[in-house]
Design a binder for these strands. Structure first.
Lengths: 210, 210, 210, 210
DNA sequence: AATGAATGAGAGTTCATTCAT
DNA sequence: GATGAATGAACTCTCATTCAT
């Protein structure tokens, strides 16, 4: 049997190297951001960490800003995908289940690659990055909004507000853990409390329909 | 009659002027940060906005970093003072009162000078700034921890964890409003929900003692 | 006997493509020079305009400088050929005829492809290009010198000086038209005046022999 | 009587140094252009030749282009001033006088600082520089046009055309000398011939009024 | 022959910081 | 204290050139 699988690194002569290079560059960016901070993140440093030349960085990204946006986008796409997936899976479930799964999923993706998450927190916000963040955050709230509307044991008068408060209340604690203000070891306890927090919140703002 | 008026730069010989200058510089820093972003925040720009020379900026701050730390510190001091004040005032109160006042106080200080709050969000994090932020955040959690311990109608098994989750859950929603992901107009509704959120949370994790 | 001559790339099957390619590249160079200026003339831009890859440009020219020299040389060859042709044709003619035909021929070749002429004007001079220009200009002066010596109605004491002044006096006005300082519409009037100018000049410096 | 004269280097503490620096930079630019050519003219090289830091160059010129434009402008201003001065002085004179003085003045200014003139010839033309050159050239033609109109012994039907041809016919020969195609030693002979050339030209296109 | 991704030296430019006035 | 011209290290980005395919 020959060569059955050949996933991700599919390679036609021309494309393969590029794909790899792009990924290597993105990864190197995160590493530099993490180990040296944003102020020290120069395109040269990224290239050298990636093991390529500066020129190669510019072959794929027109400028430093674009590179940062790409890094952010890739990370947030992971997050939003996890959130949207869980929202899909939990449709029609009870408030308790919804709270539990949404919180777990969110905390998990963010802490799964703490380096990447941390690296992004170190970035200064600006027009370009804000836009990416805002649009993905909004997408997440929409997903949660829909999910709430499908809830089996309650109705919410202002589901979008509830979605805002709920997602918002997750962002902060996770940030505290990523920045080290709260030790990562407490992540499980924090997660458990966040589930409680959200569950009780949903109960208090939802009109029971059972 | 000589020289009756002598506005803004009211000055008793030596100090007055400096105080004013320092404030003007700090304020100018926030304005530049806000209007042009961190990348465009140069000491020259700050000086020009403040109406002084670059040299003067360096008279008060040894370097750019120190200037930024000063801006952050000044802002966070306002926040922590408000929080510590409310924690002091609410000692011995019920969970409901505690949640209500802490949430209100926090949201209020942050939204009271949205420009300053926003400006700080635009900053990249780094060792120096992280340290200031971490220590002040921790101080806030301690204050809340103490407050919880004095609560009249409940006991908390792990008050520091509760403090973390509680403060954490406020950070996110406020950030969403500052960055514009959530319109500032919804601040009242969001605050109301946050009060609810915290109240219910405290109820669910506290052991009633009445 | 093999390998007799193989000048200007005349060719057999495989070579054909090259001729076309070379021309396309040279033409593309002029276009880029014209539309974007010398500063923006990159080998990549030339290649793309020519519809070939950068590599192909380097197949024919060892470096950018050589490409520029080739463009200049090709253009100046046209000019010198026209001038030498007219000098040949007018041998033994009168001063009036000589002035008329030389001026007309020169102005005509230069304005015949104004884009190419203009493109070359946009180039910075440097050792390599200066050399080409100097040697071709000198060749032109020699041709005119010879022509003057053959003049039927006058003798010139210092024909080379006369050739210099005569060719020199044509260069400027044509340049003014090419650069747009003088509108191209006036080219006929300018030409007529240049003929007059040269005719009278020759008359005044030549010793009549009739 | 104190301090009667104090021309060019007028110096109030603040201005003096700047004026000097600016001049030094402009001069250094010409030197670099001359000794290394346009391709090698980098802002760093200019600064180092001027004995200042790169930063200082940028203190006075926003970018390299502006520096070049300044060099060109300064040089052409000298030229135009000389031309305008002679045009003023010769008002009402005869064709012969006009031709003689205009030609002499032009050739003289250009050859007076052959290095500067040569340096500018080495520059690639582009939008910015073209504009300066075109406008100053036009100014020169206007001055000559006016002068011709005041000529005491002739009337010109199309003085602007005559001005174009006349100035044009000077540009070329001077360029040939500057570029070395014609040795500078022949400058006197060339000048003499140019005077003849212009004189005869004016005679042939002017309608005598005596 | 043709391609174009990769290279990396080097260019233009910025800006934190100093210091003579 | 205040000023701002001067500095120059360091950054972002470009582009001539190469070479494996």
């Amino acid at each position: 049997m020959v060569n059955t699988i050949n996933i991700s690194p599919r390679k036609s002569p021309l494309q393969q190297r590029s794909i790899a290079t792009v990924d290597v560059i993105l990864e190197a960016t995160i590493q530099v951001l993490l180990s040296q901070g944003h102020d020290a993140m120069t395109t040269a440093r990224v290239a050298s960490r990636a093991g390529v030349s500066v020129g190669s960085v510019y072959q794929y990204y027109p400028n430093k800003q674009a590179l940062l946006v790409a890094v952010i986008t890739r990370h947030l796409n992971n997050v939003i995908q996890a959130v949207e997936r869980v929202c899909q899976e939990q449709r029609g479930q009870s408030m308790a289940e919804i709270a539990k799964h949404v919180v777990s999923a969110y905390v998990q993706v963010k802490l799964q690659r703490p380096d990447a998450s941390r690296a992004l927190l170190a970035l200064p916000s600006n027009a370009a990055t804000n836009h990416v963040i805002a649009s993905i955050t909004t997408r997440g709230q929409l997903a949660i909004c829909d999910l709430l509307a499908s809830c089996s044991d309650a109705r919410f008068q202002d589901p979008s507000l509830v979605a805002i408060v709920m997602t918002g209340s997750l962002i902060g604690p996770v940030q505290l853990m990523l920045t080290g203000v709260v030790p990562l070891e407490r992540s499980e306890a924090v997660t458990a409390h966040l589930i409680l927090l959200c569950t009780e919140y949903l109960r208090s703002v939802g009109d029971s329909i059972i």
